[in-house]
């Protein structure tokens, strides 16, 4: 945030019912062209992309609103809030918005270059690949062999309950859309997920809304294990030597952050330009060193075999079904909220 920008943290407009975490106006304050972006990405991490866009588009300003994925859904679908671009890590919710007609199509040279797996219906465009990682505190695993798979982790936690009790963390699926997406995809892939959840439940797992909180806990030594967090957040921290970021070799679910243009946009062309910029900077062959949001990211050097990219498409609607979701959350609560 080297450029002039005004932080309007936690200044939620009273007329809006969705809950804003952070809001920043990038670029000239009195600009005529203000692009309103609603996003689940933390402002600090996403700022370089926006600044790059503003360099290219003099005179424009970007009003960036950071929300949780559930609030984003609420803002766009239930409240019809006037945003030009929606960026979210919850692929299922993005797909649902597009499926239910809350997004408009966008087609350009930048979107044509995307492979089929990175776009859906010319509505949803992926621009990152972010594996669900397990962040392990080096201190907590002192003297133990670092686990490589979920099974390794289960075994270690069973063998050393004293070391891990109250110190394992994962998303609270009832609060976090991304956590729910990761969990459902894990459960689709392997039964191991349920065994791990049960073990974590037996260790009185702690539940969080967000990746960054869990990583904070691991870095400070408060937590030993954070399951299914975003490696991109962990890697960008200055105290990254405190923990290890594990991409489990049995399978690693890979989420794609995606962007779409809500139908409430007031300027679809401007929104399209921004989308193109996001895609181009993410899909660049050689992104800058400090770029967080690139299509390759951490996946670039990882073992390709164990990576399971979540597929965009109507399959993602299944776990958003209220009936299905209730059943899944019930099973999850039964596993994670064990009474001692």
């Amino acid at each position: 945030m080297r450029h002039a920008l005004i932080s309007l943290c936690l200044m939620a407009s009273p007329t809006l019912a969705f809950e804003i975490e952070e809001q920043v106006l990038f670029g000239p304050q009195d600009s005529e062209t203000v692009l309103r972006v609603i996003s689940t990405a933390d402002i600090d991490l996403f700022a370089p992309v926006i600044l790059g866009y503003l360099d290219q588009t003099p005179g424009a300003a970007v009003d960036y609103v950071a929300v949780s994925s559930g609030e984003l859904m609420k803002a766009i679908r239930d409240e019809g809030a006037g945003f030009d671009v929606a960026i979210s890590s919850a692929m299922d919710l993005q797909t649902k918005l597009a499926n239910d007609g809350f997004a408009v199509a966008h087609s350009s040279a930048a979107t044509d270059d995307l492979p089929d797996w990175a776009r859906w219906r010319d509505h949803v465009f992926a621009f990152t690949q972010e594996p669900a990682s397990i962040v392990l505190s080096r201190a907590a695993f002192d003297g133990l062999k670092m686990p490589q798979t979920r099974q390794d982790l289960i075994t270690l936690m069973r063998q050393h309950p004293d070391r891990f009790a109250n110190r394992v963390a994962t998303y609270d699926l009832r609060l976090s859309g991304l956590g729910y997406l990761f969990a459902t995809q894990d459960a689709r892939t392997s039964e191991t997920y349920w065994r791990l959840t049960e073990v974590m439940g037996s260790l009185n797992a702690r539940l969080f809304c967000c990746s960054s909180d869990m990583i904070d806990g691991v870095a400070s030594g408060d937590l030993a294990v954070a399951y299914n967090v975003l490696g991109s957040y962990a890697r960008s921290r200055p105290d990254a030597d405190q923990f290890e970021i594990l991409l489990p070799t049995d399978f690693t679910t890979v989420m794609m952050r995606s962007v779409l243009i809500p139908r409430t946009t007031r300027d679809a062309d401007l929104a399209g330009e921004f989308v193109d910029h996001v895609l181009q900077s993410a899909w660049a062959d050689s992104p800058p060193e400090d770029a967080t949001f690139t299509i390759a990211g951490e996946v670039r050097n990882a073992e390709a075999e164990s990576l399971r990219r979540i597929r965009l498409g109507p399959g993602l609607l299944v776990f958003l079904d209220a009936f299905k979701k209730r059943q899944f959350l019930q099973a999850w609560e039964d596993a994670i909220l064990q009474k001692p």
């Binding site: 859906w120 219906r121 597929r311 498409g313 399959g315 299944v318 079904d321």
Partner: peptide, 18 residues
């Protein structure tokens, strides 16, 4: 129980809304 395949199979043919 909505099987995952129930909808993902629809996505195999095309990018159509379901």
């Amino acid at each position: 129980d909505l099987p995952y395949s129930a909808f993902s199979m629809l996505g195999n043919l095309s990018d159509d809304r379901v």
